[in-house]
Nucleic acid binder design. Sequence first.
DNA 1: CAGGATCCCTAATGATACTG
DNA 2: CAGTATCATTAGGGATCCTG
Lengths: 116, 116
Amino acid sequence: MTAVKESSTNHLNKLDAITACPVSFTLTKIGGRWKPIIIFNLMTGGKRYGELKRAIPTITEKMLIQNLKELEADNLVERIAKPVIPPHVEYKLSEAGKALSPVMKSMVDWARKYNV
Amino acid sequence: MTAVKESSTNHLNKLDAITACPVSFTLTKIGGRWKPIIIFNLMTGGKRYGELKRAIPTITEKMLIQNLKELEADNLVERIAKPVIPPHVEYKLSEAGKALSPVMKSMVDWARKYNV
DNA sequence: CAGGATCCCTAATGATACTG
DNA sequence: CAGTATCATTAGGGATCCTG
């Protein structure tokens, strides 16, 4: 029972009542090594699995599919599979995913001002 | 030589030219389990080491001091030590740290709309 | 009070090979 | 093409004890 949320970025799911803060919550969804990059790539529109893999050459297939599944479970990404052979699968941001745009933008702005 | 930046959140320092994105950069600074919480706590003003520890009871001393040092090295936090006995040390956000406010706010906004 | 130093564990990531 | 499965690695986090 209980079978909590079983989402991503596990260390951030252990938030207790005291340390819980909305910022941490958001970071459970978009934090980690690959999610920001994946989301960033999908901001410009839906992409196929293979396209994403080519767009992010340093990611392994395991990490890519794993992160995509977590993003899908968190309702940030939608998976559209066309039942053809060979398979055709597209990933695109959901409404909640697109709504991350201000978050991404503010991070980009901050990075441009304060990096290096 | 090169001795790059040697900052925090190591996995995110391995960004190569291709996957590098400003969002990831920002997350190297404020990501992880504790940094957002620490920054969040300092947003309302400077605090002493002991105050922070009490404000975040679930953090260990090791993690607290380690994250504070990383934040200091990244110039997000300033450490002000008064040479008295017993020691009196205060941590406060730097200008760059305060400039994270829009980032934090956008994350809070997103969390309020899309959490559970 | 504000740390430092060790030892340990697990989650997160990665490499490689295989499949409908 | 779009994934699975298995094994190995490592970095992040934690427990505990010690100190100027």
